[in-house]
Design a protein around this nucleic acid. Sequence first.
DNA 1: CTGAAAGCGCTAACAG
DNA 2: CTGTTAGCGCTTTCAG
Lengths: 352, 352
Amino acid sequence: MKITLKDIAKEAAVNVSTASRALSGAYGVHADTREKVLAAAQRLGYRPNLMARGLVTGRSHSIGLLVSDIRNPYFSEVARGAEDAAFAASFDLILCNSDLNPAKQIRYVRSLLEKNVDGILMNSVAALSAEQCAELAVCGVPVTLLNKPAGKYPFSTVLADNYQGGRQAGEYLVGLGHRAIAHLTGHRGHGNFADRCRGFLDAVQAGEGMAPPLVIRGEHTLRGGCEMARKLFSQHPEVTAIFAANDVIGFGVLEAAAEMNRSIPDDVSLVGFDNLEYCALVHPALTTIHQPKYEIGRAAVEILLRRIRAGVDTIPEHQVFGVTLIERQSCCKRFPISAQLEAAKAQALEKV
Amino acid sequence: MKITLKDIAKEAAVNVSTASRALSGAYGVHADTREKVLAAAQRLGYRPNLMARGLVTGRSHSIGLLVSDIRNPYFSEVARGAEDAAFAASFDLILCNSDLNPAKQIRYVRSLLEKNVDGILMNSVAALSAEQCAELAVCGVPVTLLNKPAGKYPFSTVLADNYQGGRQAGEYLVGLGHRAIAHLTGHRGHGNFADRCRGFLDAVQAGEGMAPPLVIRGEHTLRGGCEMARKLFSQHPEVTAIFAANDVIGFGVLEAAAEMNRSIPDDVSLVGFDNLEYCALVHPALTTIHQPKYEIGRAAVEILLRRIRAGVDTIPEHQVFGVTLIERQSCCKRFPISAQLEAAKAQALEKV
DNA sequence: CTGAAAGCGCTAACAG
DNA sequence: CTGTTAGCGCTTTCAG
């Protein structure tokens, strides 16, 4: 038999509303009565029913977290940061794995809304149609997007500086002397990947004597990375460096390389993105672009929480986190055909 | 303005109760009226309020998942399996990270109960006191434990055959000729680790000419594994093999070995437990005991769901999954002092 | 088959 | 400061 407010009101010989006030620690209740109520609640082991409370207050004290797949260590880091921040604010986190499937995504959102979540955190609205985005925009609760610019919609966003990251990766590889570089990324329309790609392409195009960069698209998973790399290795022997749009893809490249007897970094250099813990453990250790995953998750719920308190109609916040290149063992210097060109440039510089 | 049942009742010119029945697809409502109601609901974009429904039905259609840390790839696999099963049954999953902290754990449980979750899935009640376990046992919702025998409490359980796994690891290492083997594990009282340890010790004790096995305890994380291994390498140069209680600890050993210039497997062999995806990627690839993580998560919620439907007072189910050793590159054959002994045995066998 | 009414447990005016 | 009174949105008897 569950203990309700009514029970403790009776026990303390007061009205339920008084009991409610006493327990919610509000003003307007005599110290003595409060004591009495608190004691009764204690004695009976009272636990409030949050559904009932939620029904009247309209808040559930829970937020939805929609990621493509929690098994991706990137998302488990983000999720942990998010959950810690939620816990600190006494909010619960409802975990949803969308697999980037628009139907699943929208079904999750609707279900979260039916449960009256106070806010939604989501990874990718990539696959969503305009109507679906519009539905989200007016759903009545604040939404913050992870790693995706909000575009014209009133969503808050928290992102790593994906453009700069892509650019740094590109510049690094170009600086190492690579002239034929491939980029392995996810399917088109994936927001953060698009920015990484742009940054990378800009860096490559700024290099001299570069072969036109090759962009290969596939699943952004270990399996996908492996498949893309197999294709690349067999069809494009000329490329000497790869920029993988995330570490997990990079790990797939490592697997494919081992399979096909291509040495990394001797035959081909590899740069990843995310700086997962496992980068240091794989062989060779993966050079990558670091982004603060845990902090992104935390910041995302903090921003969401602020907006929940302030109201959906307040203006959305945006936060971008810097990224840095972490050098490990997956890249080598190269002196390809353009070596002379570089030497000449060096001479020119010395004369100045 | 949110659309309620009342709105659609008015729109369809029926009573709310009729609308309710029509929408819940129940018997006892004329086909025509049902059509009318469904059409109205469609037109107005009606979405039921699950808090209100839950308040009367007493069910929330959500279950709590309590793990120590979702960043551990073991748990993200389990969580994904669990979430998929929950999604299939239209249940939501509330993610909680306990860090094995009893205070946090109990706070989560209480908060879940206040939210009226229909069931709880938890990883470890290790640190819980007897009273806390008792509280859980009578909390009113079914509980299923992951990787932990239920003991005397009425919890369902889903576990890998941890004893056999530990035993297989031990036998494998003994069979390879190792005579001084260490076991790196978590702190005492961690259910599944205890069984792995027993299995391992039994295997070692069954070996001939074995040095007494060394058991070192610490955090069951990469950091912890690293620390334990550092200690081991510096204080016990005689050990030639390590059984890590899980892969993550094993990864820590790899890191420590690299740091201290100990070669794995040439100087010391290493076996892990879990068979995480990253085992194949680390260097050297980790030999380990495979357990079906995704399936464990899925089975756990399926069992939980069955019990939710049948009632808390039904008898708990128990399911154990088999494990297998996966050979990779982290182990070497050894011919230590006891080589003669083995040779002698071999001769003896040949004569038979 | 359908409507009326009660109530899930709680909060929030509104009087007193 | 405290009690009374309404609901929140829904399901579920209970009559009709």
